[in-house]
Design a binder for these strands. Structure first.
Lengths: 209, 209
DNA sequence: ACCGCTTTGGAACGTTGTTCCAACACCTAG
DNA sequence: CTAGGTGTTGGAACAACGTTCCAAAGCGGT
């Protein structure tokens, strides 16, 4: 399992094959099937291992202030996925897996502590979880793009990468007036700060429920 | 291309292989490579075709009221992805593809018309697009789950599916107190209404910028 | 009617997830 | 101490996939 996470961190989900994992562990591919049912199971278990340590760590960091609880959880997940980009794609692809359910439950509990009306808690938690996993998927996509481009320096925000290529002529810039205007202000931005800004927008909306 | 979309709608991304598409078109697999570079290209083109008609349709429906413009675009995309669940996964997996850039640009333009401050337009559009694509990915995941389960009646919200299986004992319900509480109120809910509720939360947050 | 270029169709290649099974290790009962 | 059963191991084998390759067929202009 530890070996699988290392491979995933190094080369993404494409680098993790049963054969590469078997040779890394000096064993046969068939032996792995006595520990996991199939590849989906393997990825689920790997993502679960990462998320477990994250959620436990966020639990300790949350502390007393209820209004900071959601932020601690959500930013903790963000940081974890920055370190392990494949986790985002994995969680988004199979939302019923335990790691996602625990994240959702955790966010919901924080919102309850924040005083969000019961009727709206599910909707509010959904928006927050979707935002985390949405940004997370982008990071994995950006990692894919960066590894495909030979020696290219890529920002992690795939939106900006695409918008940049639009400005360099690969896509017709005239069809994207908003993007061409806004991308100039964002040439040197902080991904984490941008994610946090999104969270704040959502929290303001939630606070008015 | 039309044939590819039909196959994707019927059986998801796994059902679309170069061999199945070739036999459906009564041709060889090699011939397809003279129209698209590879499978990623094929999926990008298919998703682009769907999104083009959606965005054009939403453009017509938007009309005069600026405050309804964002809602029209975002709900239009939601409805399209309900009909073609694979589009959501495809857009989320490669955010730099033209279809995503056009969606992002369109949402940004609507926010600009709404009077959102320039500084915050990028963050606001990001949150909205992430929410759409996040919910969209869930639908594709739910379709996968429904086709895997033999004859199972599945709700489309994968969160609820997972939560239901938690309540039926597959996952330890004691670890998910929030989910076990909230899932009872949502046994018969409307997916579209829930998506719209998420959009409203975000729009309230945006309006306070 | 000829020749160049593009398109076609199907065979072939390498890689992947998965299955299968003989060999092996280990623990428990007698 | 030994025999037998249970569970694990490792590697060969299979089917399916994306992709490449190339001979054959079309098709345009001179």
């Amino acid at each position: 399992m530890h070996a699988a996470i290392e491979t995933l961190d190094a080369g993404g989900v494409d680098a993790l094959t049963f054969r590469s994992l078997a040779s890394q562990l000096s064993t046969g591919s068939g032996a792995i099937y006595h520990h996991v049912a199939n590849k989906e199971d393997l990825l689920t278990a790997a993502a679960d291992a990462v998320m477990t340590s994250v959620l436990d760590g966020a639990a300790a960091a949350a502390g007393a202030d209820a209004s900071q609880g959601v932020r601690a959880v959500v930013l903790g997940v963000f940081d974890a996925i920055s370190a392990h980009p494949w986790v985002g794609t994995q969680l988004a692809a199979a939302p019923w897996q335990p790691a996602v359910l625990r994240l959702f439950d955790r966010v919901g509990a924080e919102l309850d502590a924040l005083g969000v009306p019961e009727r709206a808690q599910f909707d509010a938690a959904s928006v927050l979880v979707h935002h985390v996993l949405g940004v997370a998927s982008q990071y994995d996509a950006g990692a894919h793009l960066a590894s495909a481009q030979p020696g290219g320096r890529f920002d992690r925000s795939a939106f900006l990468d695409g918008a940049t290529s639009a400005l360099t002529g690969e896509v017709d810039a005239a069809d994207l007036p908003f993007l061409t205007r806004v991308v100039r202000q964002l040439q040197n931005h902080d991904d984490r700060e941008q994610f946090r800004a999104g969270v704040e927008i959502i929290l303001v909306g939630i606070s008015h429920l």
